[in-house]
Amino acid sequence: MSDHPTIKIIARFWPHALLAIVLVLPLFGDAIATKLTPIMVFAIVGLGLNVVAGFTGLLNLGAAAFMAIGAYTFAICTVPIYPFQIGFWPGLGVAIMVGAVAGTILALPAMRLRGDYLAIVTLGFGEIITDVLKNLDAITKGTQGLNPVAAPEIPFVTYSISAYKPTYYLYLALLLVAILLCHNMRKSRLGRQWIAVRDDELAARSMGISPARTKLIAFAIGSGLCAFGGAMFASLNGTSIEPSFYDFQQSVVILCIVIVGGMGNVKGVILGALIMVGFNSIILVNLTEWMTRNGWTGNNVLATPSNWKFMIFGLALILMMRLRPQGLIPAQDVEPVTQKPATAGATP
């Protein structure tokens, strides 16, 4: 980061400013809130992937699959066509658990694999999950998806389904909880184990850390978070959407959320989600709407901004890797995992 005082102030205080803005924004209208809520969901999914890919250094190319597992578990547990109908909060709980178990199952055979082999196994797992969801159409209703799933609700508070603000603040609160948990885990013994395994697996083993255990825990927690995000997404949309929504390209978008902000960095994930999802669901959509309104799109595929999505994502990734590979918030700016507790100085 530059030493210029303005940049320093921005770098120091943007999270606070962002929090203030998102707290106030819905007061200006539901339209903005509707657009911001998916960003929060993807930020949670990004946090989940960040535990695996950022903290533990295991490249996971199947994050969307865990999102799908969460979404479909939540949907099966809450849609009226099935007899479970357990409601929003128990549904979230079950989704997290199923996601964590699925992550552990994937990690079991993948524990011994290094780098690219692991990446390809997670990619394959993602393919298997979308295929299974597509093919088990007796359960998942195939490409129709399951709907209507349970809408978000706040315990002891009743509000009309059409009111958007309560959902917005609920999701914001859930995101803040997820951020806090990730932050705490990174600053604890677990976080040290993850980063030790990432930096030098063999040295970590020689320090008495079992890398297999460490990776399993990372996968369980990370996948649980991704599934949590998936369930929230399903609830927000009222449907599990369809299996092919959670394909490899979705996984890459989630990976980009983690990479753009800076791997292994909670603040970076939030920034990444804001940029990636914001671009995809706000800027591109609004630009297309605006151009259509002015009659500039016509029948030409080239004149539809959303058709340029992959091109823009792709070029952004290439340029990013070339100019700022460590992400917008590089790891060097991250404070030490364990800070000195105030009482420690007393007993030298």
């Binding site: 040290r192 980063i195 030790a196 930096d199 030098d200 320090m207 995992v337 364990t338 000195k340």
Partner: peptide, 13 residues
């Protein structure tokens, strides 16, 4: 060493 961890964190590991 775990290069990205602080000296104290290395000892803690």
């Amino acid at each position: 060493l775990f290069r990205e961890l602080s000296a104290r964190d290395n000892v803690l590991v």
